Amino acid sequence: MTSTTLKIAYSPCPNDTFVFDAWTHGRVPGAPRLDVTLADIDITNGMAERGEFDVLKVSYAVLPYVLDQYALLPCGGALGRGCGPLVLTREPGAARELAGRTVAVPSERSTAYLLFRLWAADRVPDGVGEIVVMPFHEIMPAVRDGKVDAGLVIHEARFTYPGYGLHCLADMGEHWESTTGLPIPLGAIIAKRSLGVGTLGVLAEAARTSVRMAWDDPTASRPYVIEHAQEMDPAVADQHIGLYVNEFTADLGESGYAAVRGLLTRAAAEGLVPPIAPEALAFP
């Protein structure tokens, strides 16, 4: 396996660079070498749908479209509690005030958008208005400048939105947790089934080891994290890692798989994604 180089794409966000630092830089014993591409989640979702790359970080929302080609790895991704997407507005208000309004979202294939749609079906019965897709780092300025009425934000925006003078209208994760009791599924690590069961097992163990090495020596990943943190304050990068890298990153576990099944089952019932077979999420 060490002679094999696999093409992987994940985001430049601190949680991903923290998780994959040891593996990317050849410090995980026996792990395949990686040819790394850094790209935002909306781009990696598209790569997965086109069958590009061997390993990808994607939104859980895209799984129904790619599970024929890719297997879900039981580690390396992002789930958690208190870490859901937020709906932001210029002025404080109530959810019903979004009826007929323009909302910016980072991707229509993102988990954030699925959570938003499930929330809106419950809290905005008359429906929101136009949905505008834009890169997530452009959303808060667009809300602040009045280009859209509200924005669905992810990642470190949870910590930085007050600096834009914005207000949190609703927390999608809070709604999800209160209605399901489950953690919030955000980003998944997937690998091509054609690599074979043995290789998939090696990849899962490499991802898990990389996570644990990052925890054991957080300073080792620091240069890689800061290099790609897009001018993020180091303290915010640390908050980002602390929120999104947790026990579910090392192992999805029973509650993690239940969260993913719950999200995709609910979304399919609402007609938001195609239904998946019960066994489709199982790791080979």
Rank of each mutant, 00 (worst) to 15 (best):
T4V: 14
A9G: 12
P12M: 05
N15L: 13
D16M: 14
V19E: 00
F20N: 15
F20V: 15
F20W: 13
D21L: 04
W23L: 08
G30Q: 08
L34W: 00
L38D: 09
L38Q: 09
D40F: 13
D42G: 07
E49S: 07
K57E: 14
S59P: 07
V62W: 05
V62Q: 04
V62D: 07
Y70I: 12
L79I: 03
G82K: 09
G82A: 09
L86C: 03
T89R: 14
T89C: 13
R90L: 06
E91W: 01
P92D: 09
G93P: 00
A94P: 01
A95M: 07
A99W: 00
G100S: 11
V103L: 13
A104Y: 00
P106T: 03
R109E: 10
R117T: 00
R117I: 00
V124E: 00
D126L: 11
G127H: 05
M134H: 01
V143R: 12
V143K: 13
D145I: 05
D145W: 07
G146H: 08
K147T: 09
K147M: 13
R158A: 10
Y161F: 14
G165H: 04
C168D: 07
C168Q: 13
L169G: 01
A170L: 12
M172S: 04
P183Y: 02
P183V: 03
P185F: 07
L186M: 12
I189Y: 07
A191W: 00
R193W: 02
R193M: 05
L195S: 02
L200P: 02
L203S: 05
T209D: 10
S210F: 00
M213I: 10
A214G: 15
W215E: 15
D217S: 10
D217H: 04
P223D: 06
I226Y: 01
E227T: 12
E227V: 00
Q230W: 10
E231S: 13
D233T: 00
V236T: 13
D238M: 09
D238W: 03
D238P: 00
Q239N: 13
Q239M: 15
H240S: 11
H240L: 09
L243V: 08
L243D: 13
N246I: 01
T249N: 06
D251G: 02
L252F: 09
Y257A: 04
Y257M: 12
A258I: 03
R261D: 06
R261I: 09
R261N: 06
L264Q: 02
R266Y: 02
A268E: 02
G271W: 08
V273Y: 01
P278K: 10
A282Q: 11
